[in-house]
Computed example of a mutant assay.
Amino acid sequence: MTPRIEVVAIDTLMVRLFQRIDEANMPWMLAARQRISTAFGTHLLDLVPSYTTLMVQFALPPSEARALITQALEGLQPDAGSGGRRHEIPVWYHASVGPELPVLAARSGLSEAEVVRVHSERDYPVFALGFAPGFGFMGLVDERLASPRLSTPRKQVAAGSVGIAERQTAAYPAVSPGGWNLIGRTPVRLFDREREGFSLLQPGDRVRFVPVSRSQFLALGGDDEAQP
């Protein structure tokens, strides 16, 4: 790994650690985030991790910031104990709230039950937050479930909707437009202004989707109104 530092703005640099998305990147990204945060201290204004990059905003001369980053990343090694939290997120997988569930089943040659099993049988690292507050981009889903975004995005996707786009998966934290393939819905509140940090998920966390019945979903506060 040879990090590359790119200029974004007069007070912002982009540290590119990798060229492609891979789950194995995450321990390195988290270690780099911690080292850079420590190196900049109070001069750090913002540090935004993503799939392969870290965006660093600072209150320092750019040359000093670049030197700090270079020094911080010397001898970088992933820290086995630096991972985020693990979340188990209940999901009611059903065509009424996940209209692409039968579509993915037909496309993959799996039954709907097998799609649910494959999607929920593993942990997904949270690569980044974006699109909407609390929206965590996760992956990578099994190649059999990989599906392109809808050619025409929906004008309204229900809060809690769980979907797949290419080999990524995510849950919508609020009602919004969206073009992901919906396969179920969670009752979990992913963004809450009363919660410290607001977002339930953070880059480096891991998520396991846990299938639940409709009655369990409703008991947990879920809304079973059909997705338009």
Rank of each mutant, 00 (worst) to 15 (best):
A132P: 09
R86L: 13
L60C: 11
Q168L: 14
Y124K: 00
G136F: 03
D11R: 14
A65T: 13
T169C: 03
S82C: 08
P228N: 04
A67T: 05
G81E: 12
P49D: 06
A165Q: 09
V141H: 13
E112K: 13
V115W: 03
V91Y: 01
S120K: 05
V91P: 14
I5M: 07
D223R: 10
Q156L: 11
S96L: 10
R4G: 03
Y51K: 12
A9Q: 05
L68T: 04
R20I: 02
S120I: 06
I69L: 07
E64L: 12
L54H: 07
I5R: 04
T12E: 15
R144E: 00
R33N: 01
S199Y: 08
P90G: 02
D224M: 04
L68P: 12
G222K: 12
S176I: 05
R193C: 09
M138T: 12
P228F: 06
P27S: 07
E100H: 15
S108Y: 02
Q156C: 07
P153K: 10
G81C: 08
G222R: 09
G41V: 09
S161A: 14
I36W: 04
V116D: 00
A113F: 08
V126Y: 00
D11T: 13
G179A: 09
L47K: 13
K155T: 13
D192W: 09
V162N: 10
H87W: 14
L104A: 12
